[in-house]
């Protein structure tokens, strides 16, 4: 097999990888932030709030990611246009970003919720006894401890997200896998390009996963 055409296709592949990573990082940030809010809502004493958050999580965990991506591609531009009164399309990248953030938030929520619940009630009481408000208690005392415990799980989930970003091909976004596919198509060497893409996904995911396991060991000692 001849892999030389990969070299010439490298700039395209690289920009595809940049898009994948950009999507990944923004989706992690947004997903963890939204997931944390959802977790706080699920744990809240307010019945309405916790029911709504529970419904959100169960809903998004029960439908395919591909559906969410295609759905948001058509629905999000419509909603934004409706809200802002303009007709400008927001583009596949942002619709995908919102889809990933909202979908992953459901999974991050469950991780954060377990993390918060693993911190003893005594810590909450101690913070309250010092006069802290609910939000101070969460921000300064509970969440910093919970996140420390959850970091390995959040990273594992993010590695899955890294692989799932390839689903954006459905709305024509040129991420790494899609760039590899189209690059291979052009020169008629699809096999080589897909093998290469598989190797890159494997190295990144497996490498990250190994690092996470090592981190996990260090955190538990």
């Amino acid at each position: 097999m001849d892999f030389s055409s990969l070299i010439t296709a490298m700039p395209g592949l690289l920009s595809g990888m940049m898009l994948t990573l950009k999507l990944l990082v923004l989706a992690i940030i947004g997903g963890v932030a939204l997931g944390t809010l959802l977790a706080l809502a699920r744990l809240s004493n307010n019945k309405l709030l916790s029911t709504l958050a529970g419904f959100y999580v169960n809903y998004f965990r029960s439908i395919p990611l591909l559906l969410v991506i295609t759905w948001f591609y058509f629905v999000v531009p419509f909603i934004i246009g409706w809200l802002t009164g303009t007709n400008e399309p927001i583009g596949a990248f942002y619709s995908c970003l919102v889809a990933f953030m909202m979908f992953e938030a459901a999974y991050y929520c469950e991780i954060v919720r377990a993390g918060i619940q693993s911190i003893s009630k005594g810590q909450v009481n101690a913070a309250y006894a010092l006069g802290m408000s609910y939000s101070q208690t969460m921000r300064l005392v509970i969440l910093p401890q919970a996140f420390r415990k959850m970091t390995p799980l959040l990273l594992q989930q993010s590695i899955i997200l890294f692989q799932d970003t390839s689903l954006v091909y459905a709305v024509g976004l040129m991420d790494f896998l899609n760039s590899a596919r189209s690059g291979g198509d052009i020169v008629g060497e699809l096999h080589q390009f897909l093998l290469f893409a598989g190797l890159v996904y494997f190295i990144i995911s497996f490498g990250a996963s190994t690092l996470v396991k090592r981190l996990q060991k260090r955190l538990t000692v």
């Binding site: 003893s120 009481n125 101690a126 913070a127 006894a129 006069g131 401890q145």
Partner: peptide, 20 residues
Amino acid sequence: LPKLRSRVGMVFQHFELFPH
């Protein structure tokens, strides 16, 4: 309540220092 609690000290059985 937070204001009132800030004026009353409390010490717990399991210390509850913030470990981080």
